[in-house]
Every structure is written in structure tokens, then in C-alpha cells.
């Protein structure tokens, strides 16, 4: 039985040498999958491949039973994959509310309900809704970024290092929100540097090394794995 989003045997790069080799990443609904690994291991590349931002030489990408490997990034957004980039992930010159509206650009139905849900999830944003996103603090901006992605009501949410450069308190908060989002039925894929904390909330984890799957398993399992601990988690 394949998972909700199943990306297998992905091989490719940015046109030059291949960066990922036969890489597999799968995620199910209401599940958090975390991709960890050393710098340059191809974590972000793998995620970009899943989004269609690089063209793969090989690979099977199945979303909810249908093949998406030929779709453009925009079409994958329409198909239900949302992405939060690591940097430049908000429209800094637009207000918070306009950011949300832009997130829902492809939707033609009433989006007020979704906006309401998001304000419930991130209450701070309701107060700031008429402020320019560029004027917010780092943590709040991250919330806007995640919210913008959620506006499409995605089935899969991908986050590239959502906690990079934020304080531990904010990090904790962001992870809590991600769990809430997961519980609403969304499949979540996270690329993370803060491996320990991320694996803590992960249902499943992949350790990439040199563009290949090195280890994979449930989050807690990986955390306990001596080899993984020694190599990537600092003992």
C-alpha cells in the first residue's frame, strides 16, 4: 500500500552532476516526515525535486494515486502541495492579510473561512493583519509564511528549515503549530538543521547522506539509533 505522497527513486540535480541518487521520501496524511542530514547532503534538493523545481532524470512521484512527476511547480501547487521556502518566504511589501489572499490566489471560493481558521491557529496575526509583513519580527514572519502556504488548503505542506534563525522559544512554538496542522489531516515534510528537536516531533525521519537514503525510521527510533546519534546529533 503506497503512502499518500510517494516519491521514489529520485535521481537528478541542477543540470550538472546528480546531487540526489535513488532517493526515496514518502509521507502519509496526518504524518510529519523530517529530512535531516549533514550540510550538502541534498536535503533541500530532494524537497525541490518533490516540488518540481528541478527536473529529475528518474523518479516516480505519486500524489494520492496519480502521477505528478510531469507537472510544473504551479500545477503541483494546484494539485495540493504547498511549500514554505527558507528565505524570502513572505511578500514583505504586502500586509499580512494580503499575504494570505495571495496564498489563496488559485482559489475561487470564499476564503474568509480559511483566514478565520488561520487566525485561530496564529492569534498574533489577527492583530497584525493590516501591517506590512516585512515589518514583523522573524518569528511572526515565519507564521505568515506558513499561513500563506496553508491558504491553498494543501494536502501536503513542505517546509524548508522553518526554524532557521529563530529563538528556541519561537522554535518550540512553530513546532507546536506544525503538530496542530498535522492533526487537521495534512501530510507534512520538513527539512531541518535542528535535527534533534525536529525528530522529536517527527512520525518518520529520513537521514540523507551524499544524496542517498542512509537511515530511515520512526523519529524516536532514529533518535535512539547510536550511529545516527554519533554522526549527526552530536552524541
Amino acid at each position: 500500500m503506497t503512502k499518500f505522497l510517494s516519491c521514489t527513486n529520485m535521481t537528478g540535480g541542477y543540470g550538472g552532476e546528480d546531487i540526489i541518487h535513488s532517493c526515496d521520501i514518502e509521507v502519509d496524511k496526518s504524518q510529519i516526515v523530517v529530512i535531516v542530514g549533514p550540510n550538502g547532503a541534498g536535503k533541500s534538493t530532494a524537497m525541490k525535486a518533490m516540488l518540481g523545481m528541478i527536473s529529475l532524470k528518474e523518479g516516480n512521484l505519486i500524489l494520492d494515486g496519480s502521477d505528478i512527476s510531469k507537472l510544473s511547480p504551479q500545477d503541483r501547487v494546484a494539485a495540493g502541495i504547498a511549500f514554505v521556502p527558507q528565505t524570502m518566504n513572505v511578500f514583505s511589501e504586502l500586509t499580512v492579510e494580503e499575504n494570505l489572499e495571495m496564498g489563496a490566489f488559485l482559489r475561487d471560493d470564499n476564503i474568509q473561512e480559511t483566514i478565520g481558521e488561520i487566525y485561530n491557529l496564529f492569534p498574533a496575526m489577527k492583530d497584525k493583519r493590516n501591517q506590512l509583513a516585512g515589518e514583523l519580527s522573524g518569528g511572526q514572519r515565519q507564521q505568515v509564511a506558513v499561513s500563506r502556504a496553508l491558504m491553498t488548503r494543501p494536502k501536503v505542506l513542505m517546509l524548508d528549515e522553518p526554524t532557521a534563525g529563530v529563538s528556541p522559544i519561537v522554535m518550540k512554538e512553530i513546532f507546536e503549530r506544525i503538530i496542530t496542522i498535522k492533526n487537521s489531516g495534512v501530510a507534512i515534510v520538513i527539512v531541518e538543521q535542528n535535527a534533534k528537536q525536529a525528530l522529536n516531533i517527527a512520525d518518520f525521519g529520513y537521514v540523507l547522506v551524499g544524496g542517498e537514503n542512509k537511515f530511515s525510521g520512526e523519529g524516536q527510533e532514529l533518535l535512539k539509533n547510536q550511529e545516527v546519534r554519533k554522526s549527526f546529533l552530536g552524541g
Binding site: P73, Q74, V77, A78, A82, F83, P85, M88, N89, V90, F91, S92, E93, L94, E98, M102, G103, F105, L106, R148, T152
Partner: peptide
């Protein structure tokens, strides 16, 4: 305005 502000993110939001 969104496209003018952040082209990549506009693409990710499905703006043509």
C-alpha cells in the same frame, strides 16, 4: 504587487 515584491513566492502561490 506580490509579483513585483517577490517573484519566486508569487510563482509558488500559483500567480501566472
Amino acid at each position: 504587487r506580490a509579483y513585483s515584491n517577490n517573484e519566486d513566492l508569487a510563482l509558488l502561490s500559483g500567480i501566472n
